[in-house]
């Protein structure tokens, strides 16, 4: 096994599926010769040729439409949206078109498109690059939304996403791209979409989270452990659909939960998780389910990122409120 960063694991997953299925096409802005601005597609054009890995004109809506059209010709497009903050330009193709292709055609046509895109704060991008917009995506029926938190998961989830016959939004947190390495098998493997991962078992409190907040939550759990609290951390990995069984099983065991997301508080994934717990396990609860999130402003200018983003300290604070309720 090799030690890989998340970005290397993503490149490896793309390579694996391009070898497995000649219908897989990779395209977007600067993904060809340049290998992508983060080098996620490094070496792919050289290995698989310009017919299968290619640069497009600079227009996100066009990239979305191109993906839909190529899918109608039996291809399995894996377009890159250079930064997810640019997704508003391609919203019709995603929400208006791909997400409804199966439905609009009475189940006869599909859009097996995997849109890969970097997102997330803490790396000092210019504004409108780093927003956590997974809540917006998750509110669209017809889409699946996947957010890996480790190199190992990134490879297995991306292979599953590409093989999925429905459109998948695959969000890659920029801070996680090169923050750590992990053993990643060189052979192919898949991680099913819609399945959470219990990162750490515990009996007093469940922290339900995803993306870069998994690391912060793990740090918080260690902190809380020192005070004698046994904390379970669940990495959702797929935020739409949720792994409802894993969430409820954990809450029924610990009777207390908090939900942690990097995104702002209003609407969004955490609110949805709280509502699901409320629907299904309210009688197991010893305390209200609280949320740790960013505040409800737009994503801040880079100088304010570090004070705006939620961190382990915020998580410990909220966890204590729930533990002592």
């Amino acid at each position: 096994m090799a030690q890989m960063t998340m970005i290397q694991a993503i490149t490896d997953a793309l390579k694996t599926e391009m070898k497995n299925d000649e219908n897989v096409l990779v395209f977007g802005e600067d993904v060809g010769n340049n290998g992508g601005v983060f080098r996620a597609t490094e070496g792919l054009q050289k290995e698989f040729g310009e017919d299968r890995v290619f640069d497009t004109p600079l227009a996100e809506s066009g990239i979305g439409g191109l993906a839909i059209g190529l899918a109608l010709q039996g291809y399995r497009p894996v377009p890159e949206i250079q930064f997810f903050g640019f997704v508003f330009e391609v919203m019709d193709s995603i929400s208006g078109q791909m997400a409804r292709m199966r439905y609009r055609s009475g189940g006869t046509l599909t859009s097996p498109v995997t849109i890969r895109s970097p997102f997330g704060g803490g790396v000092h991008t210019p504004e409108m690059h780093a927003d956590s917009l997974e809540g917006l995506m998750a509110s669209q029926p017809g889409l699946k939304v996947v957010i890996p938190s480790t190199p190992y998961d990134a490879k297995g989830l991306l292979i599953s996403a590409i093989r999925d016959n429905d459109p998948v939004i695959f969000l890659e947190h920029m801070k996680l791209y090169r923050s750590f390495r992990q053993e990643v098998p060189e052979e192919e493997y898949t991680i099913p979409l819609g399945k959470a991962d219990v990162k750490r078992e515990g009996t007093d409190l469940s922290i339900i989270t995803y993306g870069a907040m998994v690391q912060e939550s793990m740090k918080a759990a260690e902190e809380l452990e020192k005070d004698g609290h046994s904390v379970e951390v669940i990495d959702l990995r797929t935020v739409q659909p949720l792994d409802i069984e894993a969430i409820i099983a954990s809450v029924e065991k610990t009777n207390r939960a908090i939900v942690v997301q990097e995104a702002q508080k209003q609407a969004g994934i955490a609110a949805n998780v709280v509502a699901e717990i409320n629907d299904r396990a309210i009688l197991s609860l010893e305390a209200p389910v609280l949320r740790v999130t960013a505040p409800d402003s737009v994503f801040p200018f880079s100088q304010a990122e570090q004070v705006w983003l939620p961190n382990a300290k915020d998580i410990v604070e909220t966890a204590k409120k729930v533990l002592t309720f």
Partner: peptide, 12 residues
């Protein structure tokens, strides 16, 4: 919306 999709079908 059909114009960008047509580009994709044509490329396919």
């Amino acid at each position: 919306a059909q114009f960008i999709q047509a580009a994709g079908v044509a490329l396919g």
